[in-house]
Design a protein around this nucleic acid. Structure first.
Length: 441
RNA sequence: CGGAGUGUAGCGCAGUCUGGUAGCGCACCUGCUUCGGGAGCAGGGGGUCGGAGGUUCGAAUCCUCUCACUCCGACCA
């Protein structure tokens, strides 16, 4: 993409409504635009990141055996009356009437609808287990939305729902999601520590939330330093191996980790040596629940067991805040100059800087490299604008692409480009004809 | 939902107390000089002053109502 033809409205000053760093940076980079309290348009740069995150989530859900569907944002109220949550959910649920005066609502979550879908399609224990998910916009009419996309009212969420015949099978489904969450967040460069959680309005028996460390997080967190030293990235797992999956869960839940709601100071001090006690703030990026038959019973989601008897299915639900992750990753990865995108979610991999647009030789070298990179599938944002170098550097640092390739007359004399790593700041001179291979192209 | 604040150009702000031609910086347009870490000079464009009523010869400014947004607390992917 040529920056001269892109839509990326950069701001030099922080908009005053932004309080936390991710919100400021997203606005300054032109990633989002606020439309109402807690409601944002996603501009091209932000949209690319959102889609990258969504795709990683999708791949890891599929890998763990979940099956993608898509349910509507607007739901009929009757479904919720059946589960008893229409009244219980309170004002957070946005209620709407259609032209026939039928009660509708903008879905804050989908337990009811998915259970209804499941009920129609599955009658026998032979059809279990199943795990259905979708990635869809939710609306929760928060009393006080804030912090940009971190606590919006409208937000993109992945929610999965598992259905099993027995408690034990349900536990395995829960465990699979637990492990897939570790992998999902790790792929985005995050260490999301699983912590035992309150079940809240979703209700149920077992629950963990996944939190990433960030000073602006909304929850206080207390955990064992050993978590951060664990291997989050390389463990490979056979999701059908019940014992192996359970071992990973066991491994990641055996150490102390709690949010302030569940924190027990005495236990913390007993179980964690002083030097290893980490206390700080965390951002919740995922939350999983095992709730047994809480919804299947009232919703009549029954299957016929081997003995011919009807039994309610055991189910769980599993959420990842996809749009929140965009902010969360920035909170976890930025510096004074701007964002530092982990490569897996970066809107572009390479920022190509033409230091002297209008100079025939520099233009030619940049154009050639730009086309070659693009042709080989490297995502490159080419700053071909006629601007001064300082502004270009500042913009590129601000939007935080992992790599910068800097080409100007000075280096060009010797046939070299400069390659800069945004994260480390390290620069190296690379012969122009070697830049392609430098990016695996 | 309680408490506190703010609405003036794309962004940041002054002007409001004490009514009298709507301003500044950045950004944007034109020209010249510049050009490896946010340049200089000159010229220029852009505003229903959140909205509606009222007071007044005259309202960004005073009065009434209203809407939106932000922050602090209780709740949450």
């Amino acid at each position: 993409m040529r920056l001269s033809q892109y839509f990326m409205p950069i701001l030099r000053d922080d908009p005053k409504e932004a309080e936390i760093v991710s919100h400021k940076l997203m606005l300054r980079c032109g990633m989002i635009r606020q439309e109402a309290a807690g409601s944002y348009s996603w501009l091209p740069l932000g949209f690319r990141v959102l889609k990258k995150i969504e795709q990683i989530v999708r791949e890891e859900q599929n890998r763990a055996g979940a099956i993608e569907v898509l349910m509507p944002t607007i739901q009929p109220a009757d479904l919720w009356r059946k589960s008893g949550r229409y009244d219980a959910y309170g004002k957070e649920m946005l209620r709407i009437k259609d032209r026939h005066e039928r009660d509708m609502l903008f879905g804050p979550t989908n337990e009811e609808m998915i259970t209804d879908i499941f009920r129609q399609g599955v009658k026998s224990y032979k059809d279990l287990p199943r795990n259905l998910y979708h990635i869809q916009w939710k609306f929760r009419d928060e009393v006080r939305p804030r912090f940009g996309v971190m606590r919006g009212r409208e937000f993109l969420m992945k929610d999965a729902y598992s259905f099993d015949l027995t408690r034990q099978a349900g536990q395995h489904s829960y465990n699979k999601m637990f492990v897939s969450y570790l992998k999902t967040f790790a792929r985005m460069g995050l260490k999301a520590v699983p912590m035992r959680a309150e079940t809240g309005p979703i209700g149920g028996k077992d629950s963990h939330e996944f939190l990433i460390l960030a000073p602006t997080g909304e929850s206080g967190v207390f955990f064992d330093q050993a978590f951060l030293d664990m291997d989050w990235t390389t463990f490979d797992i056979d999701y059908d191996d019940v014992a192996a999956v359970a071992r990973v869960v066991e491994d990641f839940t055996s150490k102390y980790a709690a949010t302030d709601e569940k924190h027990d100071a005495a236990e913390f001090e007993k179980r964690v040596p002083e030097a290893a006690r980490v206390t700080g703030r965390g951002i919740e990026v995922g939350h999983i629940f095992f709730f047994g038959t809480k919804y299947s019973e009232p919703m009549g989601a029954m299957v016929q067991g081997p003995d011919g008897k009807m039994v309610p299915v055991e189910s769980g639900s599993y959420g990842i805040g996809v749009s929140r992750l965009v902010g969360g990753i920035i909170e976890a990865s930025h510096d004074e100059a701007g964002i530092i995108w982990p490569e897996a979610v970066a809107p572009f991999t390479v920022g190509l800087i033409n230091l002297k647009a209008g100079d025939a030789e520099t233009d030619a070298a940049c154009d050639q490299l730009y086309k070659a990179l693009a042709a080989r599938g490297v995502e490159v944002l080419y700053d071909d604008r006629d601007e001064r170098p300082g502004g270009k550097f500042a913009t590129m640092d601000l939007i935080g692409l992992p790599w910068q390739v800097i080409i100007g007359p000075r280096g060009l004399k010797d046939g070299i480009a400069e390659v800069k790593n945004r994260k480390t700041g390290a620069r190296e001179n690379v012969a122009l004809d070697r830049v392609l291979e430098r990016f695996g192209a």
